Computed example of a mutant assay.
Amino acid sequence: MLYDLFQVSLKAGEEILDVYAHDFDVEFKEDDSPLTQADQRAHQAIVAGLKGVGGEIPVLSEEGKEIDYQERKDWDQFWLVDPLDGTKEFIKKNGEFTVNIALIEGKYPALGVIYAPALDEFYFGSKEKGAFKLVDASKAVIANEEDLLEKSIRLPEVKQNDVTNVVASRSHMSPETEAFIEELEGKVEVVSSGSSLKFCLVAEGKADYYPRYAPTMEWDTGAGQAIVEAAGGKVTRHEDGERFYYNREDLLNGWFLVSKT
């Protein structure tokens, strides 16, 4: 299944980059904007691809979020998808936007993939296989899952040192995040990245913590959580320290903390 999701992600990435390659000036996500075009084209590519991977497994996507809770509340398994995560990064053209796909089983992510098309980096993880990163993903010769695993780097890659690295938003630092950093002992450095790549920094071992004390949606976090957990990390709710879960009636996430161990 990971190989199939790799192919689906590459296809979605192609659709996004086709739009991204052209000059555009957009401030908001309006109908027929380049951002909306990229979203929709990636969404269509992913949904079509997942039909060939998971058969009848339903899809909950940012571009298809109108599915009523009464319809989805009894789902045992579903795909959680953000076709294009990182609106600001896409508009700024800094390359730090991603395609996110997670398989949720029993309200928790069982596997997830994150592809950064402009960076051509593919992150993936499952509870059975562990977590991995493939660089130059679109150029790699990958014929099956065995190839994918063999040619990828197992995560975490970075070993522990005497500095605590914290991922913070590129756009702004909230007072709560500042307070979290101040409470840490020893030398602390702040690293930043866009979109779900923040999760990937923790999975790689390049960051120890990613405190998210601001709103996100379920499709923003499912794939990242799967990869972090596959790398031995945790994603916990701020209010009670419990494991983050999915398919809630309200798809708006509460605050959470991503930690390397």
Rank of each mutant, 00 (worst) to 15 (best):
A12K: 04
L184H: 07
K187W: 04
S9P: 04
L134D: 05
K29S: 15
A168C: 13
A102G: 01
D76S: 13
V190G: 06
N165F: 14
G95L: 03
A168I: 15
R248W: 12
G95F: 01
P156I: 13
T36N: 15
K129T: 05
G233K: 05
A38D: 04
G55D: 00
V47R: 07
D82L: 10
H22Y: 12
A48K: 15
E150F: 11
R212P: 07
L60A: 08
G224S: 10
I227L: 05
T87S: 06
E56S: 14
L60M: 14
P109G: 02
D240I: 03
I91C: 11
E182W: 08
L148Q: 01
G64Q: 09
I153H: 08
F24N: 09
F244S: 03
A116N: 04
G222P: 06
D76K: 13
I101T: 01
L119Y: 02
Y209L: 01
T236K: 09
N100T: 03
D39N: 14
M217G: 13
A12P: 06
E189F: 11
G49M: 09
V47F: 06
E178L: 14
T216G: 10
A140G: 05
V59G: 04
W255V: 06
G86K: 00
L201Y: 04
E105T: 07
K51S: 09
D76N: 12
P175I: 09
I46C: 03
Y115N: 01
K51T: 08
A230Y: 07
L84Y: 02
Q160E: 15
V26R: 06
R154W: 06
K65A: 15
L80Q: 07
E157T: 12
E27A: 14
D18C: 07
Y115L: 05
A137P: 03
E62Y: 10
F132R: 01
A143P: 05
V158W: 14
S126F: 14
V202Y: 00
G186F: 11
K93V: 02
K65F: 15
E249I: 07
